[in-house]
Design a protein around this nucleic acid. Structure first.
Lengths: 128, 128
DNA sequence: CCGTATATATGTATAAGACACATATAATCA
DNA sequence: TGATTATATGTGTCTTATACATATATACGG
């Protein structure tokens, strides 16, 4: 038994001096979805696949992704239509709105700033 | 009144098409504290000041910072001694341990990976 | 002696976020 | 009829962020 209590979500201790850390950006899935929809309209099931290459931390839960999409639409950041032309069951195809596009711009600006904060820490780490 | 519900923590809508986003790395204060202590031993009150230039999102709450430091010590990532030599009230001076140093290394590695994920999104954004 | 600043804690509370799992629906196809 | 695709909502738990209150003790200035 390890005397240490339970560990934080984003890191775990594999053994003495052996740590694994997963640095996450809060709500990173949001700009990811907005960017994918800015590239081209898409639907939930398709987005889930595209997000995997993006987020790298495993699969996205379908339920939570659909919930996010409904929420983005309720905020006016995306709009959707039921597309009938495609084969298979009905797909709700989302596209980004002007508002969503401007939120994406704000995300990008903020991610650049965040990158600079991280870079600043890393540079300082190098000098030790 | 705005029909939209309450907003996420990390962004707010100032007006039509006017968003402000704050991209945060989860638990970023942890590598920041470890790095500062890797540079030189320090105590809570002093760290609070140094962290402001680092984190950029306003002041750090003293209570929560002290709690974090006690927690890091309980995990064996830092150690502390009461230093009597200095003027003023007793200061608990922390220094990083070997374990803490290795956790910092893991954080750095993970932050680099995170930077690359962000960069990847930003590059893709540029192509739109 | 008293108030203020420095310094270190702990207690409590709430909101937001991450994540997992269950359930429900409908269409399509083999 | 059952499997696959596709969309949703409900629920629950844990973590993180943050704020505010409270308590202690030292030291210094007036």
């Amino acid at each position: 038994m390890d005397k240490r209590g339970r560990q934080p979500r984003c890191r775990c201790r594999l053994g003495p001096g052996n740590y694994q850390v997963q640095a996450r950006v809060e709500r990173f899935i949001e700009p990811a979805v907005l960017l994918l929809l800015a590239e081209s309209p898409s639907h939930g099931y398709e987005l889930a696949e595209a997000l995997e290459s993006f987020l790298e931390d495993g699969r996205v839960d379908f339920g939570n992704l659909y919930r996010l999409l409904r929420s983005l639409e309720s905020e006016g950041l995306v709009t959707s239509v039921w597309s009938e032309e495609a084969p298979g069951p009905l797909k709700r195809t989302y596209k980004i709105t002007e508002e969503g596009s401007q939120l994406l711009d704000a995300w990008v600006e903020s991610l650049r700033a965040g990158q600079e904060r991280i870079a600043s820490l890393l540079r300082r780490y190098e000098t030790i």
